[in-house]
Design a protein around this nucleic acid. Structure first.
Length: 345
DNA sequence: AACTCGGGGCG
DNA sequence: CGCCCAGAGTT
């Protein structure tokens, strides 16, 4: 670890170089044209653990449909989930909707300007509160995210374990050493540098505005940083579904919010004995999530008997949806793909 | 302090 | 195939 016995040293010039670089090289992104805290908040949530290229369409569609807090607060939760379809981490959509109602009820529809108040919103943690307050309201908190971990650990050749629960406060202090007056632009500069230059692999150090100040670069050890000891291994999970369809309709239900795919729609996981006669084929899908290896077995049940269909629906709490209308519901990615294929047949 | 939560892209 | 991405909530 870097011995900061030279605490009196001035690292501010690093932050100022980053600001200067950002002034010429900032990415042209839709949420860079505004300081509307609503839009900045939404973009911060959308891009949590999500690359810009992956979430850009979702962000634009979301803002187009929900342009302000009130529109979002007045919407149905299921429609908010629909606009989150395919993005993952679906509690973000549920929390974003709840938070919009918090703003309506607790702040009279006016987005709170204070860091501590922003932090009270559902789904808003220390990173997002710092980002919104600094970008929109001149707040002075560093928005410490994965980019901060990577950039700062390399500049100082600091081997502090970023998987430690103390990493956030540790790198917040480190950020304080280089942070200039304009914290909002500094936070965004760190994000762009981490994304475009100081990348996880094969960083473009030759183009880096602070390569003169980077200890890891001078030691030719950028690949040693950041240090992350804790690795999470994916666990196996087997799911079983029945795709029960008849006359262009099929059965679905909504998941709970206590496991994966919170409040998304899925197929029945059981059928009655008299239904088993109508199983046409069984398909096994493997699907890889970050923390889970899924094996999904889906039995295709072509329900020829109206009586069996009606009886099963009456005895269970399944919803019916048309093939054509199923795009109005948010399904997990593998089930979405399955429905798309079923439509072709 | 450790665990959990998606999906996509890249080397 | 492992790692990472504009992290936060729960236990």
């Amino acid at each position: 670890m870097l011995e900061r016995d030279n605490k009196s040293s001035d690292f501010l010039h690093i932050g100022n170089k980053l600001l200067n670089w950002y002034g010429k090289n900032a990415r042209d992104l839709p949420f860079r044209q505004t300081k509307d805290p609503y839009k900045i908040w939404i973009c911060e949530i959308v891009f949590q653990q999500t690359r810009i290229s992956q979430g850009l369409n979702h962000y634009n569609n979301f803002i187009k449909r929900f342009p302000d807090v009130k529109t979002l607060a007045d919407a149905e939760e299921n429609e908010v989930l629909l606009y989150w379809k395919g993005l993952g981490y679906y509690s973000r959509a549920i929390n974003i909707h709840k938070a919009s109602q918090q703003i309506m009820n607790d702040y009279h529809g006016v987005f709170p300007a204070d860091y501590e108040e922003i932090l009270k919103l559902k789904g808003v943690g220390k990173y997002t509160a710092a980002a919104v307050s600094s970008i929109c309201f001149g707040g002075r908190m560093p928005a410490v995210d994965g980019n901060f971990y990577r950039v700062l650990s390399r500049i100082f050749a600091d081997d502090f374990d970023i998987s430690s629960s103390r990493a956030f406060s540790y790198f917040s202090q480190l950020a304080g050493l280089v942070m200039p007056e304009n914290v909002g632009d500094f936070n965004q500069a760190m994000m762009d540098l981490g994304s475009e230059i100081c990348k996880p692999k094969n960083p473009l150090c030759g183009e880096c505005p602070v390569n003169d100040d980077c200890l890891a670069f001078s030691l030719d050890k950028t690949s040693d940083y950041p240090v992350k000891t804790k690795k999470v291994k994916a666990q196996d999970l087997a799911l079983k579904y029945y795709f029960v369809h008849r006359n262009g309709q099929f059965l679905i239900r909504q998941r709970k919010d206590d496991f994966i795919w919170k409040k998304l729609f899925e197929f029945p996981d059981t059928i009655s004995e008299d239904m088993e006669l109508f199983i046409r084929n069984v398909k096994t899908i493997t699907h890889k999530l970050t923390h889970k290896n899924l094996t999904i077995e889906i039995s295709n049940v072509e329900m020829d008997s109206e009586a069996v269909w009606d009886r099963f629906i009456a005895q269970n709490h399944y919803l019916i949806t048309d093939f054509e209308d199923s795009h109005d519901k948010s399904f997990p990615k593998p089930l979405e793909n399955y429905i798309q294929n079923a439509l072709k047949d």
